[in-house]
Design a protein around this nucleic acid. Structure first.
Lengths: 366, 366
DNA sequence: TGACAGCTTGAATCCTTTG
DNA sequence: ACAAAGGATTCAAGCTGTC
């Protein structure tokens, strides 16, 4: 009964919580939410080449403090919980700025976390000042409506098929949204500061919905969720406040066609051989800091630093650059050039790398 | 003064918060914490003060469970914050069961999150029921003591070196602790349910401590933190309640060899190098007064004055300010921007600075 | 048309010392 | 306290223009 009155295929214009209140109880099969992250950016940030980084400074990401953000989070999460069917699940995406608060609130409300899933970005923005690790991932929480809601949809076999017939893991390696997929406004600037890649949404929908399911996105933005839902034969409902985003989303979804090969949309980036930095050999204890390496004919030596650099009489750097430098060669494969002594015999360090790769298994991409 | 009384190299036996209270303010350089994921023991629910919660309905049970866990978390995190130096940082590891609560509490206390770091497990346990994604990662939060504590230790160059000279990302791929590294009890069962791999701790310590720093682990378990600290030439303090873990940890650390080559463990950051004024290059005769410098693409030139200033067609000032001015850029590193001609080849003036620094003797560590 | 070099850009809580 | 100056800092994609 309720379903027939659902505003399927429409974008509800207005405040997120207000609009959610107009939907009936237990009426949607999935919620995908990409709420404001409460980024609290300070001043300007420049790249080393002096170009300015366009940060997120939109009004919709400004909150007075954690309390205000928590209240906002609680309100929209509670409405989503009401609106979800008992077989439905909810996804939220966020960064370290907000995801811990979102996760705790979600638990407080009685949602039951099924997984946290890490979106590893193939091409993240670097850390330009060298003060932190490259922030190379975002976190998604996947949760059922309650601890007792155990009959949620999970397409285990589809996920396994996507991942070369191995169970899909909780870490997904996907590129960010760029190139022609990234929507532009009339000025040629990005239409939305935080547009998500369709590949991410495709995997979410393929994992946790069935055809014709109703997917609700309370922070619709430029309609990635709607476009992917349409492409995959799912129904959708959006909520969005900003007129400029709604306009872009409507045009986008109108131009979207159902996909011929739905699985292809969600494919992971394949990576060939897993890359093993030399530093891993030290971390794994296969090479000791301070140990002396040498070439096959013992013409040169270099000492290993704890950070994975080599130091020779005159040079310092990676195994490759020091190998090249001592020989006066333009390049050098340090893996085959340098050796360590084991039981009185020289062993190429590449042998240790192989050992690690064996332990890792061959897969690193998906 | 405080430091001399620190119980370095000792395991404090007792309740975590009680023991932390015995440590002086601002006395440790790093905290690594692997807290319990819930407070349920033997199926019963306990408050932090070890009083048992009576049988209750599900909702209240859940509420009390989270509330108790949050209170416990708040207590130990607050003590760690008190005990940390202003240059120190804290790491916490957890899974989706507890990490969101820990992260939110940490923010509420005024810690300043620097990164969340994902430990991707090379060989995770599969999901046997096929109802979820393989839980293939755990999450670590790395945080400074407060927003204003910006002089925390981060060995940027060491991390970059460890990763084949590319910035270390926030997702780390490492094997779980298994094989001979996994400690067993007398029955041959694993001595601790959640023993972390030494490679994980090694990367944490190499990233965020210097040799001789004091590392505190409030949930010491079988002493992975202590063993790795010893191996890497760091000092350590442990807190642990369970006698059986303490016994294992003591034996383990006694058998661990201390760093054999402290020099190889010194991780010089570029920022730690001595400052060399541009004028020194002139005093040393490496640059002549009146000589003309130019940028790599020979788009601008500037003449060197005897006092170390540059003069271009329209600007005068330091190598940095003139470099910025000619480009119309907000800032410029004159050392890498300006070049001098030697034997017909352009040489960045930074090369002359390196030459002077070599003569001063390389200052390693800090 | 292809190869290649160069430019742009991405949810970012992104400096340090001296005066 | 604040202001000024020194000087350290980036990776993967995708697009554009040139030869």
């Amino acid at each position: 009964m309720g379903e027939t009155k659902l505003p399927v295929g429409r974008i509800l214009t207005g405040d997120c919580v207000d609009m959610l209140r107009t939907l009936p109880d237990a009426s949607v099969d999935l919620v995908f939410a990409d709420p404001p992250y409460n980024l609290q950016l300070g001043g300007e940030l420049y790249r080393p080449n002096n170009t300015r980084v366009a940060g997120v400074d939109d009004d919709w990401d400004r909150f007075v403090g954690f309390e205000a953000y928590d209240a906002f989070t609680r309100d929209w999460l509670a409405e989503c919980q009401r609106v979800l069917k008992d077989t439905g699940t909810l996804w939220v995406i966020g960064s370290y700025h907000n995801i811990f608060r979102v996760g705790a609130t979600l638990q407080d409300l009685g949602y039951w976390i099924l997984n946290d899933v890490v979106w590893r970005k193939a091409n993240p923005m670097p850390n330009f000042r060298g003060k932190r690790f490259t922030n190379a991932h975002e976190t998604m929480i996947w949760a059922a409506r309650s601890e007792n809601a155990r009959k949620y949809t999970f397409n285990y076999d589809a996920m396994k098929a996507l991942n070369d017939d191995q169970q899909m893991r909780s870490d997904w390696f996907l590129p960010i949204c760029s190139g022609s997929e990234r929507l532009k406004d009339d000025n040629g600037d990005k239409a939305h500061p935080t547009q998500k890649p369709e590949s991410l949404l495709a995997r979410v929908l393929l994992a946790s919905t069935r055809p014709d399911d109703v997917v609700l996105d309370p922070f619709f933005g430029t309609g990635t969720t709607g476009a992917v839902a349409k492409r995959l034969g799912r129904r959708w409902i959006g909520v969005e406040r900003e007129a400029k985003y709604i306009e872009v989303a409507k045009r986008r979804i109108a131009e979207t066609e159902a996909a011929e090969d739905p699985l292809a949309l969600a494919l992971a980036n394949k990576r060939d051989q897993p890359r093993v930095p030399f530093g891993r050999l030290i971390e794994e204890g296969l090479i000791r800091p301070g140990e002396v390496l040498f070439d096959a004919r013992r013409r040169w030596t270099a000492k290993v630093r704890a950070d994975g650099h080599l130091i020779s009489a005159e040079h310092r750097g990676s195994i490759h650059s020091v190998g090249a430098a001592v020989q006066g060669a333009p390049a050098c494969n340090g893996w085959t050039f340098w050796h360590a002594e084991r039981k009185g015999m020289p062993v190429p360090i590449d042998a240790f790398r192989s050992q690690i790769r064996l332990g890792m298994g061959e897969k690193v991409g998906a």
